[in-house]
Design a binder for these strands. Structure first.
Lengths: 112, 112
DNA sequence: ATATCACGACCTATTTATAGATCATTTTAG
DNA sequence: CTAAAATGATCTATAAATAGGTCGTGATAT
């Protein structure tokens, strides 16, 4: 049987996953593709595509984003900025930040 | 041993996952939180947070989005539109679309 | 209206991810 | 420079996701 494990998620996380699933489904239908089509092209099972579209939290990032790509959904590209550009921006940003965070007595810059 | 399985992903999917990871890491560091902190608050292991930040395709959507929420990263909210609003928009959109897609002889509206 | 087909729900075996520990490495704070 | 601490990597047992079938239901096209 195995324990249900019963993980808990915040509302925001759940809604974000649901939204992703809905966007995928909408994009797929607009493209006139069947679930089976997308599954085959993504190299995953029909059931998994279905669960992704339902926004189930257990599905893997890889599968979900692959499906998104296949149905032409462009995450992170609501703006003229492309995904690749976003990537380098974030990479650059990271080099400017400390590479590890000190937990101890840190004066948070909350003084304003 | 089990077969390596060796799944393949499109470049877009890989970059999207990597971007999400980078954004999470940047947000976490800006918030001055440690990986262990975030892991505990998300109810997941330190290693999983690390893999999510590295953009590994195997991590679950639920874990990734939960971590994103915890570090204050707001997906789908680059604009004044909130996540919840997006959700209802997509839900509405879905009701206007056919509920199943016919594979057969379909004239795609590619005529332009 | 009806035949066809996509969808959605199950189920089980198998593959895979995850937790949790340990250890090495790197980085920060002092 | 040094000490303390966070990160990152690796390992094993366990839990969970996935594949891949089946089947019922519902929608669609004719």
């Amino acid at each position: 049987m195995a324990k249900p494990a019963h993980r808990s998620y915040s509302r925001y996380a759940r809604e974000a996953a649901e939204l992703l699933g809905l966007m995928i489904r909408n994009a797929r239908i607009e493209r006139n593709s069947t679930v089976a089509d997308v599954a085959e092209r993504a190299g995953i099972s029909r059931g998994l595509v279905h669960r992704i579209e339902r926004g189930e939290m257990g599905s893997s990032i890889g599968a979900a984003y692959e499906v998104a790509a296949i149905v032409g959904l462009r995450l992170f590209e609501a703006e003229p900025t492309t995904l690749t550009r976003h990537l380098s921006m974030e990479r650059d940003k990271l080099t400017l930040l400390p590479q590890s965070v000190r937990k101890g007595t840190k004066k948070v810059k909350d003084d304003f």
